[in-house]
């Protein structure tokens, strides 16, 4: 005899995926209208300014400078989009409950809802980077510079790095008590992710090892994201010239790392979100 309640069918994987996809589609639609367009116009404007005006100062290495500025702004605008969107979304869902209210009348679990939000934001990032990357590539062609295949790997690396930051932002947004603490923590993690390994290596390479600093820093470097791994953008010329090795294996490692690290944090964010009180 079946137990009470067992008559209600357990949600199968396809149903779950369909619900997550529905939330991600809605998130993308909500955000895409203003975010992508605004960011693209801003990106193009800044890039044209730096590309045309400032690269005149970079006499003899305009192409390199233009490329470096382009990748830097691509990442910067991507980061800006995700940081402000994630906080707004989670704030809206947790504290004002404006969208949550609509979803929770349907049978959807909280973690599914947050994962849907995550995938929606990941799609938004992909779209933003695609549009900005397209604008940048157009400018590269207009200026008569060479477009290398390696740039595609760099775009993908930037995207993967931003995905890790997206997971971090979701995790932070579910625990942060204020907007200021959220932004400061996110930016600190972002910067520390770039320098923690570097400083650790520096300390290890010193003739007189500073044991106290090393002991303090080492555990931290195992927790923080390791953005030093995303090295293609900082080694473009040396890779192209064959002085530094970079192949599909390197990219696969970056991909694997992003999936494990980003996925773990996304799970953590979902878990935290499931335990939060929704204030409607």
């Amino acid at each position: 005899m079946a137990a009470i309640g067992s008559s209600m069918p357990k949600p199968i994987m396809a149903d779950r995926l369909a619900r997550i996809l529905a939330v991600s589609k809605l998130t993308l639609l909500e955000e895409v209208r203003h975010k992508v367009l605004n960011a693209t116009f801003l990106f193009a404007g800044v890039l044209i300014y730096f590309g045309v005006v400032l690269s005149r100062l970079a006499l003899g290495f305009e192409e390199r400078f233009f490329r470096d500025i382009g990748f830097a702004f691509l990442e910067f605008f991507g980061l800006a989009i995700l940081l402000q969107s994630v906080y707004r979304i989670v704030e809206q869902d947790v504290h004002r409950g404006s969208s949550v209210e609509m979803y929770f009348v349907r049978p959807i679990e909280r973690w599914e809802f947050l994962l849907g939000r995550y995938f929606g934001m990941a799609a938004l990032l992909w779209m933003s980077l695609g549009v900005m990357g397209g604008a940048w590539s157009g400018l590269v062609a207009m200026r008569g510079f060479v477009f290398e295949t390696l740039y595609l790997y760099v775009f993908l690396e930037i995207y993967l790095k931003l995905l890790i930051m997206l997971s971090t932002a979701f995790a932070l947004a579910t625990i942060a008590t204020s907007q200021a603490s959220y932004f400061i923590s996110a930016l600190l993690i972002y910067a520390s992710g770039h320098v923690a390994y570097l400083i650790r290596s520096l300390l290890e390479h010193q003739e007189r090892m500073d044991m106290t600093s090393l002991l303090l820093l080492k555990p931290l470097s195992y927790i923080l994201p390791n953005f030093s791994l995303f090295g293609a953008v900082n080694n473009l010329e040396s890779i192209l010239a064959g002085a530094v090795r970079y192949d599909f294996y390197d990219f696969a490692c970056v991909l694997g790392y992003s999936l494990v690290y980003g996925g773990s944090l996304a799970l953590l964010a979902s878990w935290r979100f499931s335990r939060r009180e929704i204030l409607i």
């Binding site: 650790r200 290596s201 927790i223 390791n226 030093s228 791994l229 773990s264 953590l268």
Partner: peptide, 22 residues
């Protein structure tokens, strides 16, 4: 989650040391 993150970072530090930090 913490174990997964620490293990991944440990492996990365082992196989991908920082380039030209010195």
């Amino acid at each position: 989650v913490i174990v997964a993150i620490v293990a991944t970072n440990y492996l990365v530090a082992l196989y991908f040391p920082e380039r030209y930090p010195e």
